[in-house]
């Protein structure tokens, strides 16, 4: 049963009392006893299956309120306080960040790269980049052109075969990206804009139902594109050498150094089968068109089955 199958009141009650759901390989449990935040999470996770209480979560998030004042609200993850004195407009964005941190900072054999990931026709594009690079905006735009959302935040690479494991979660947009997506995709399901967070204005895009339904279908990496939003720069896609692609990916990885030799071998094998590019853009429509054109340029024989894992 999905959260969306429940009545609104039941959904909100779930999140207020504590509930669990799965996103890709991770089980998250959240307890948010504040009505408006519980309601928002119930909306964001409407397509996710409600898990039974006995399931052991990988990440446990909770909001605790001491007294009635807003300054007494704290966010905990795995029993440790993450944020104290959380202001009302910061609660939902901080909950989402806490979930990201709790889920993606766990020890794992998978290689984790700070990147958005989308897929079409079995071929995935990784969009690694720091905050402000435009990766989330580009990811949200591609998703509204029929690409499947695997992740807005972290590429999870399985070392045994190089496949990308989907971790579909709400896409977090900041500042001007909110209006840019509204203009690009007027029908996009965007939640309320949370003003004055630590990262400015933030809004979340609902993960598409189809992407959530296909969260157990990994995808083969085909391209690694480093986006860089730069006003006035036009739209330019430049090929990147394999060595530079590897170094840039390593620089954007969360656990590359922790995995050591295995991390290098996994990343090098992914680079074997991917084409690397740098994309400078100032217009979402042009950037999406450019990335869509990559499908036509794909070299034969670069499919995952022909790569280092075959």
């Amino acid at each position: 049963m999905k959260f969306g199958d429940l009545s609104l009141a039941e959904r909100i009650r779930c999140f207020r009392r504590g509930t669990a759901w799965r996103t890709g390989p991770y089980v998250v449990h959240a307890r948010v006893p504040i009505r408006f935040a519980a309601r928002h999470l119930a909306w964001l996770y409407q397509d996710f299956e409600v898990l039974p209480h006995e399931v052991i979560p990988d990440a446990e998030i909770s909001v605790r309120v001491a007294g009635f004042a807003w300054r007494r609200v704290s966010i905990f993850s795995d029993g440790a306080v993450r944020y104290r004195r959380v202001a009302r407009q910061q609660l939902v964005p901080l909950l989402e960040w806490t979930m990201n941190l709790s889920v993606f900072h766990r020890p794992t054999q998978n290689l984790l790269i700070h990147a958005a990931v989308v897929e079409k026709a079995g071929e995935a594009v990784l969009l690694p980049g720091e905050a402000g690079s435009g990766k989330s905006t580009l990811c949200a735009a591609l998703v509204h052109r029929g690409w499947r959302l695997l992740s807005d935040e972290v590429a999870v690479i399985r070392p045994s075969d190089g496949y990308l494991l989907p971790v579909p979660r709400p896409v977090s947009l900041k500042e001007g990206a909110i209006e840019a997506l509204r203009e690009f995709a007027p029908t996009a399901c965007l939640g309320p804009v949370w003003p004055r967070t630590a990262k400015g204005r933030v809004a979340h895009v609902l993960p598409p139902t189809a992407s959530v339904q296909r969260m157990d279908e990994p995808a083969g990496p085909a391209w690694i594109v480093f986006p860089q939003f730069r006003p006035g720069a036009g739209c330019q896609l430049e090929p990147l050498g394999k060595a530079d692609t590897l170094l840039h990916c390593a620089g954007n990885a969360f656990n590359y150094s922790v995995l050591g030799r295995q991390g290098f071998k996994t990343l090098a094998a992914v680079i074997d089968i991917c084409s690397g590019y740098e994309l400078v853009f100032d217009d979402l429509e042009a950037a999406v068109r450019t990335l869509e054109s990559l499908h036509g340029r794909r070299d034969a024989g670069l499919a995952v089955s022909g790569g280092a894992w075959s």
Partner: peptide, 19 residues
């Protein structure tokens, strides 16, 4: 070592973890 036949080759130093 990882060599793609390009101008640059990549070397991973197992002891230091540097690439």
């Amino acid at each position: 070592w990882k060599d793609w036949g390009e101008e640059l080759r990549v070397v991973y130093d197992v002891a230091s973890g540097d690439t």
